[in-house]
Amino acid sequence: MTKKPLIISTDPGIDDVAAMTISLFSKELDVKMIVPTWGNVPLKYTLQNTLNLEKFLGTTVPVVVGANQPLVAPAISAASVHGKTGIAGFELPEADNSLVKSGLAATLMYEEIMSSPEKVTLMGIGPLTDYALLLKQYPDVVKNIEEFVIMGGNIGRGNHSPLAEYNIAGDPEAASVVFNSGVLVKVAPLEIGNKAHVTQKQMAEIKKHGKVGDMLYSMFSNIHEPDGDTRIKIFDPTAVGIMLHPEFFTMKKARVDIELTGRFTYGATSMDFLNEETNALIATDVDVDKFAGWFIDSVELAEQGQK
């Protein structure tokens, strides 16, 4: 089986850790590069969290230092949800910088994408700053990008502001660049992350899957949702889900635009399902049982990869 070449832009973040872990041990994916960016917490933490996770997992995928701030707006933070360093509840081993590949993220991504014999998929599970810089600096790169797959945006209400989801609100201008790139964008929006979850019983099962299961159990047990919801919601892995198992989801075509000027709507995602000039595929529903089963199986697969 030919593996799908993948670059991950991420801001770990607890659910980012889960998405990266699944991706790194997936039989369908060949992760070429991980680009930590600012997002849930500042870059110095997301970079170190990425390196620490790879040391913990024993993987050696190159890490490229991404953006340390949005294109235009001031940076926001989700430290209240994920902890000051982005990862609460589990102590990963401290890693050195040996996996860090020196150079500008846009240039290194461009070189990787253009040298690939197959088109490369770009997954964004944080603000899309680095992908926007890539597209602006090297516009010809689009011909060798298979698709963007993101966790972000919202059909209805937001979680950062009344009408904006956190990842898009973090860098609305960057998101606008990605959606207007001419490359198909597959979207797992906020609503899917709110619905896709595992139960406390299922999380207890995950805990039994060796050191990987124990890590994820400990981290997810320390997420503090602003709304007090006690369900264990699995946001960023939904991006991996729509990429590998679209059959778990209801996917609908839409025209997506990002609000960049509104006083109360800045960062809102306009998903127009009636516009025929579509640029995105939006997950509008998910089979929760199938998703949860796949998530648990993926954790077990990652643990087996440790042995």
Rank of each mutant, 00 (worst) to 15 (best):
residue 261 T to Y: 07
residue 195 K to S: 07
residue 286 V to N: 00
residue 52 N to Q: 07
residue 250 T to P: 10
residue 166 Y to R: 10
residue 207 K to N: 01
residue 208 K to L: 00
residue 302 A to V: 00
residue 131 Y to T: 08
residue 151 M to W: 14
residue 17 V to M: 01
residue 127 P to L: 05
residue 270 S to H: 15
residue 257 D to F: 13
residue 108 L to W: 07
residue 243 M to G: 05
residue 203 M to Q: 03
residue 41 V to L: 05
residue 100 V to G: 00
residue 128 L to N: 00
residue 129 T to N: 10
residue 47 L to Y: 01
residue 69 Q to S: 15
residue 188 A to G: 08
residue 148 F to G: 03
residue 221 S to M: 15
residue 146 E to K: 13
residue 288 V to S: 08
residue 109 M to L: 10
residue 67 A to R: 12
residue 183 V to L: 04
residue 256 V to S: 07
residue 244 L to I: 00
residue 105 A to L: 09
residue 52 N to D: 08
residue 198 V to Q: 10
residue 283 A to F: 00
residue 87 I to T: 06
residue 207 K to D: 04
residue 205 E to Q: 00
residue 165 E to A: 05
residue 54 E to S: 09
residue 307 K to P: 14
residue 61 V to K: 07
residue 84 K to A: 14
residue 278 T to Y: 13
residue 157 R to E: 15
residue 125 I to C: 00
residue 99 L to K: 01
residue 122 L to S: 05
residue 92 L to S: 02
residue 258 I to L: 06
residue 301 L to R: 15
residue 269 T to L: 13
residue 146 E to C: 11
residue 298 S to H: 08
residue 30 D to C: 04
residue 36 P to N: 07
residue 189 P to L: 10
residue 16 D to Q: 05
residue 276 E to R: 15
residue 37 T to F: 10
residue 108 L to E: 07
residue 101 K to V: 14
residue 230 T to I: 15
residue 169 A to S: 07
residue 209 H to K: 06
residue 300 E to K: 10
residue 216 L to A: 06
residue 140 D to V: 04
residue 187 V to F: 03
residue 253 K to R: 15
residue 191 E to Q: 02
residue 221 S to F: 15
residue 91 E to C: 03
residue 45 Y to L: 10
residue 179 F to K: 02
residue 47 L to F: 00
residue 123 M to C: 05
residue 285 D to A: 12
residue 26 S to P: 03
residue 220 F to W: 02
residue 296 I to N: 09
residue 214 D to F: 10
residue 301 L to N: 12
residue 60 T to S: 15
residue 306 Q to K: 08
residue 142 V to A: 01
residue 78 A to T: 13
residue 214 D to Q: 08
residue 197 H to T: 15
residue 268 A to M: 10
residue 133 L to E: 04
residue 99 L to G: 03
residue 299 V to A: 00
residue 15 D to K: 02
residue 79 A to G: 15
residue 222 N to T: 13
residue 28 E to G: 02
residue 170 G to W: 05
residue 183 V to Y: 06
residue 91 E to P: 07
